[in-house]
Design a protein around this nucleic acid. Structure first.
Length: 478
RNA sequence: GGCGCGUUGGUGUAAUUGGUUAACACGCCGCCCUCUCAAGGCGGAGAGUACGGGUUCGAUCCCCGUACGCGCUACCA
């Protein structure tokens, strides 16, 4: 008896995927997969003035890249298509005609200027700004006359007055709004395109959507939608309005205060697994005292329930994202991580053609970075010529340092290869032999090998450089 | 202005559907490890649950009010 769960992610193509949209898509995806249902992508491109070239392709790419593959939608198709609203215009026309015929909608002929004027007056009077429903009183003949004379028109929703709309949101519980406060929303614009409200209701019904999971900014327009469902005699899907993602100052996450496009984060070297993990935990938690925070996508699918989504907005905390991304980097498969890091190294001019060495480098730097774009900075040590400041070179060229290097060279020469495990014991022997220890022993070696006073443990450095390179760098100072 | 939604340390979240010294993670501070910087290990500071009233033997949890924040208030989504 349970219907198959069908949910949709219905973005308007803006040219990039906003983090808030990413999370909405993510929640829809997780909910669908958890319930063994379908995740549908629908493009809400009904605003011709906001058209962006290539935006749809970009959206699909990024969604796929993030692993949020949809079951039905543009490109992949499905039995409820087309999945772009701009290709469904006749459908909206048909249903708006039906509303007109049943008296649930009406024609209106005001110009944009007239509406502006109306609002201005309302504002001055301190009244609520909304359409004053003036066209409701037009007679059939007046309407006919205006239509035949070619005056541009819109079709507006005829909101039933003096009552209230009650509904239950899965996340927010019961909500009620008086219909007198609900605007006679434009449903069909004068260019023949539908507004969000009309298209959304019709498509959700036609595409047999069972659960609407979308951002909180839509909560107050739910009554308009319910009025439409009622007018058509359709069942209202279940609804869940997820909280917004916020800037540190608690306003809605915006460009002004940092990057908001998913693409930007990928470019900076955040791993998609980490991003998905982090975004899910923004406003959701498995609860019941679960203290784990690192979850694979499969685990999230298994655990995710929409009821556990928080109702309050969540501040986007980059510090925590960085930490989590670092956790993923530390534990990632080394071959895959190397593959991901190579482009970042190349773009800094590092030659990665020696794959074996590159892999050793990645192994060495993974504990030192929290984003992939920090890799080049950390990796430089292993690739560039050593250059020292006057003080540093004085230390390296001191008598004791020379002793250390000579002893090391002799011992290293005898080694088959340097490993992380055998380098340190070798240094211990050098210490015994020369009587030089502590900082006087290690710092010259560090400087000779890397040219820097800070860095990973020496064993790691020697291992990455390899025997030949280590010898080569040491010999420069004896 | 109107309407709606929200409010647990700085941030993200917990707290067996009223009974806990209010827990965990990030961040911050300190210690250990150590040649250095991270990582790691250990420890610490930081909220009495926005505020004020109720209900109750007992409220983070239920009810009311206030404050504050956010959202919506377009022929944008």
């Amino acid at each position: 008896m349970n219907k198959e769960v069908r949910v949709r992610f219905a973005p308007s193509p803006t040219g990039y995927l906003h983090l808030g949209s990413l999370r909405t898509a993510l929640f829809n995806y997780l909910f669908a997969k958890h319930n063994k249902g379908k995740f549908i992508l629908r493009i809400e491109d009904t605003d011709q003035s906001r058209k962006v070239e290539g935006a749809v392709e970009n959206l699909i790419n990024i969604l796929n890249e993030m692993g949020l593959n949809y079951d039905e939608g543009p490109v992949v198709g499905g039995e409820f298509g087309p999945y772009s609203q701009s290709e469904r215009l006749e459908i909206y026309k048909k249903y708006s005609d039906e509303l007109l015929a049943n008296g649930d909608a009406y024609y209106a002929f005001e110009t944009a200027e007239e509406l502006d004027e109306m609002r201005k007056v309302q504002q001055m009077q301190g009244k609520q700004t909304m359409y004053d429903r003036r066209a409701r009183v037009l007679t059939e003949n007046e309407v006919k006359e205006k239509l035949s004379s070619g005056i541009p028109y819109v079709i507006r929703l005829k909101v039933p007055l003096d009552t209230e709309i009650k509904f239950k949101d899965i996340i927010r519980g019961n909500v009620r709004i008086e219909t007198n406060l609900v605007d006679d929303q434009v449903l069909l614009k004068s260019d023949g395109y539908p507004t969000y409200h009309l298209a959304n209701v019709i498509d959700d019904h036609l595409m047999e959507i069972t659960h609407i999971i979308r951002g909180e900014e839509w909560l107050t327009s739910v009554p308009k939608h319910i009025i439409l469902y009622n007018a058509f005699g359709w069942e209202v899907p279940q609804m869940a309005h997820v909280p917004l993602i916020l800037n540190p100052d608690k306003s809605k996450l915006s460009k002004r205060q940092g990057d908001v496009a998913t693409e930007d984060y990928l470019k900076k070297g955040y791993l998609k697994e980490a991003l998905l993990n982090f975004m899910t935990l923004l406003g959701w938690n498995p609860g019941e005292g679960e203290e784990k925070e690192i979850f694979s996508k499969n685990e999230l699918v298994e655990l995710f329930t929409i009821e556990k989504v928080n109702s309050a907005g969540a501040v986007f905390n980059v510090d925590k994202l960085n930490w989590m991304n670092g956790e993923y980097i530390k534990n990632y498969d080394i071959d895959k991580l190397t593959e991901l890091i190579i482009p970042f190294l190349n773009s800094s001019g590092i030659d990665t053609s020696d794959i074996a060495k590159t892999k050793r480098v990645v192994f060495a730097i993974r504990n030192y970075i929290s984003k992939l774009d920090e890799a080049a900075e950390q990796a430089k040590t292993y690739y560039y010529e050593v250059s020292l400041s006057p003080e540093q070179s004085e230390l390296v060229n001191s008598e004791t340092s020379k002793q250390v290097f000579e002893s090391m060279i002799a011992k290293t020469d005898l080694m088959l290869e340097i490993t992380i495990d055998n380098f340190k014991p070798m240094l211990s022997e050098v210490q015994k032999e020369t009587g030089i220890k502590g900082k006087n022993l290690f710092m010259p070696v560090r400087l000779a090998l890397t040219g820097e006073e800070h860095g990973p443990e020496l064993g790691l450095i020697a291992y990455v450089l390899g025997k030949d390179e280590v010898l080569c760098r040491l010999r420069k100072f004896v």
